[in-house]
Amino acid sequence: MNQVSQRKTICVIDGQGGGIGSTIIKRIKEHFGESVEIIALGTNAIATAQMLKARANRGASGENAIVRTVARVDVVIGTLCIMLAHAMMGEVTPEMAEAVSGCKAAKLILPISQENVDLIGVSRDPLPHLVDMLIVDHLKPLLDATS
């Protein structure tokens, strides 16, 4: 088996402007380089374009791309909104939310929501701190355990 096929595939999902997804992708690339493949999935083309600029390996936009891709990756990363139907001003369809929540991939979800949802018992750390926790405390051990 060649080295490329052994890489874990990480899917980062974002919508609207793609800013959070871009931040996540940049930090993953800084930490793991090309040892992982990152697929940027945007709920719209602008979000996908921004995540591709952040150095995602591949990208796609829209409901069908998200529904089909999450079923084939090792890890899904995004904010709480990617699991809430009609979130992100309606960009997350019920089919997208169901596909993400029901896929077999490990899901690393940041507790950030622009919806009227409060997560009780979760810290309200700023995005850079949450991304560091995501990578160091959750993604790295997950990838190390499956190597």
Score class of each variant (00 low, 15 high):
26 K>L: 14
27 R>D: 15
71 A>S: 13
128 P>K: 04
6 Q>W: 07
69 T>I: 10
106 A>I: 15
37 E>F: 10
36 V>Q: 05
61 S>P: 09
40 A>E: 05
135 I>N: 01
115 E>P: 05
142 L>H: 07
15 G>R: 07
30 E>L: 10
139 L>K: 00
67 V>T: 11
97 A>C: 06
122 V>T: 08
65 A>K: 04
97 A>G: 04
132 D>L: 07
26 K>Y: 14
31 H>V: 04
58 R>T: 14
103 C>Y: 09
36 V>D: 00
97 A>R: 04
77 I>N: 00
34 E>G: 13
123 S>G: 06
88 M>I: 14
137 D>A: 12
75 V>P: 01
93 T>Y: 12
21 G>F: 07
137 D>P: 01
122 V>H: 02
21 G>C: 02
85 A>Q: 08
25 I>N: 02
53 K>N: 11
103 C>A: 06
91 E>Q: 15
120 I>N: 06
33 G>E: 01
99 A>S: 12
35 S>C: 03
82 I>C: 03
62 G>W: 11
47 A>F: 09
129 H>F: 09
121 G>F: 00
41 L>K: 11
114 Q>P: 06
24 I>H: 01
114 Q>F: 10
118 D>G: 02
41 L>T: 10
129 H>A: 15
6 Q>G: 11
38 I>G: 00
141 P>I: 05
142 L>V: 04
8 K>D: 01
139 L>A: 07
17 G>H: 08
46 I>F: 13
124 R>Y: 05
29 K>D: 12
115 E>D: 15
77 I>D: 00
53 K>E: 14
11 C>K: 03
78 G>W: 13
86 H>Y: 15
122 V>L: 11
25 I>C: 01
86 H>Q: 15
48 T>D: 06
19 G>E: 10
111 P>R: 10
24 I>W: 03
5 S>V: 13
5 S>H: 10
111 P>M: 09
77 I>S: 00
28 I>H: 03
136 V>M: 05
35 S>R: 12
57 N>G: 13
93 T>K: 08
31 H>P: 01
52 L>C: 12
42 G>V: 08
108 L>D: 01
38 I>H: 02
49 A>W: 03
146 T>P: 00
64 N>R: 13
64 N>T: 14
80 L>S: 14
27 R>G: 11
